[in-house]
């Protein structure tokens, strides 16, 4: 996903001199290294100094540039939080804060590297939008949006890492900013998710289909602003809805969908599976960590009534 993002950004940079990349001592893998070689004056490595990463991005944007701040999610968002809030969001500048390893995907690095509440924190700030693509193709589409004419204001772009499988190849809908995206449409149950966790949703849907269920798999790559009308349609057209989210239980997609459900007095069964309101103290694979907090394919299948 990370590589497709860099590839798309490099491609777009050749015709858009506004694009600047500001990293905090993170190795510029693959195409980002090409960018660095070709546009050295537009590639800034601040070193281990994330507050200046965000401040410099704000200054670049105040003078008409389109900067991307790029580092590990915890350091992109938590360390320089007040710069993100004041410099980027309060001034409503078109800066993208790229958080790689969002959620708990750096599953062996420990709690200091688990961004288990990044969506909540980014989403709490006015003007901030959040994009969390689920696979390399969606990462490319999101990047194209962020460089396009429709893009306004700051965005937190939550990534996993490299090597995610393609899961949107056969999607019945394309990526559109601010819209839910059906990968497949069914009648009995809807599974709503975003980001890397979409992989679990797809696997759960396959298991449910084997049991004879007709399943919708719906991506929510634009976590904020939420496609409220889209969510209402999901809640009204399925008897059972499951939200699977790799984020803290408050202030993310799960709690948003619940609040929409209350507002419209939805009649469907609605279950949400998120990370717990507890720090993660274990290590292992990404799926091990998610499972430790109750987020797994069997858990989604069970919540979906399978």
């Amino acid at each position: 996903m990370r590589n497709k993002f860099a590839e798309a950004l490099y491609r777009l940079s050749r015709s858009d001199p506004r694009i600047h990349i500001v990293v905090a001592d993170i190795s510029p893998a693959g195409p980002m290294n090409e960018f660095r070689k070709e546009f050295p004056e537009r590639f800034i490595n601040v070193g281990v100094a994330e507050q200046s990463m965000i401040g410099i991005c704000a200054g670049l944007a105040l003078k008409g540039m389109l900067p991307f701040a790029y580092t590990i999610a915890t350091f992109a968002l938590y360390r320089p939080f007040e710069m993100v809030r004041d410099d980027l969001c309060y001034q409503n500048l078109p800066v993208t804060v790229v958080g790689i390893g969002g959620g708990v995907i750096y599953s062996t690095l420990g709690g200091t590297h688990y961004a288990q509440e990044d969506i909540t924190i980014a989403g709490a700030i006015p003007n901030m939008s959040i994009l969390a693509p689920c696979d390399p193709a969606e990462a490319t589409a999101a990047t194209e949006y962020l460089v396009g004419a429709d893009r306004k204001g700051p965005c937190y772009l939550r990534f996993g890492k490299a090597g995610e499988p393609d899961i949107t190849k056969d999607a019945i809908e394309p990526f559109r900013f601010g819209k839910l995206r059906y990968l497949r449409r069914g009648r009995d149950v809807a599974i709503l998710s975003y980001g890397v966790t979409m992989g679990l949703a797809v696997k759960a849907a396959a298991a449910l289909a084997d049991k004879g269920k007709s399943v919708s798999v719906i991506g929510c790559p634009t976590v904020k602003p939420l496609d409220r009308e889209g969510v209402i349609e999901v809640l009204r057209s399925h008897p059972r809805v499951v939200v699977a989210e790799e984020n803290a239980p408050r202030g993310g997609l799960a709690s948003e969908v619940k609040s929409v459900a209350w507002d419209i007095q939805a009649r469907c069964a609605l279950q949400t599976i998120t990370l717990k309101d507890e720090f993660v103290h274990c290590y292992g694979s990404h799926e091990d960590l998610l499972a430790a907090h109750g987020l797994s394919v069997p858990a989604i299948v069970a919540a979906a009534g399978g």
């Binding site: 600047h20 004056e41 800034i44 507050q51 200046s52 965000i54 401040g55 410099i56 991005c57 704000a58 200054g59 670049l60 944007a61 105040l62 003078k63 008409g64 540039m65 900067p67 710069m83 410099d87």
Partner: peptide, 9 residues
């Protein structure tokens, strides 16, 4: 920090 970004831009 913002001034540095402006100067580069």
């Amino acid at each position: 920090g913002m001034a540095v970004g402006m100067a580069v831009a």
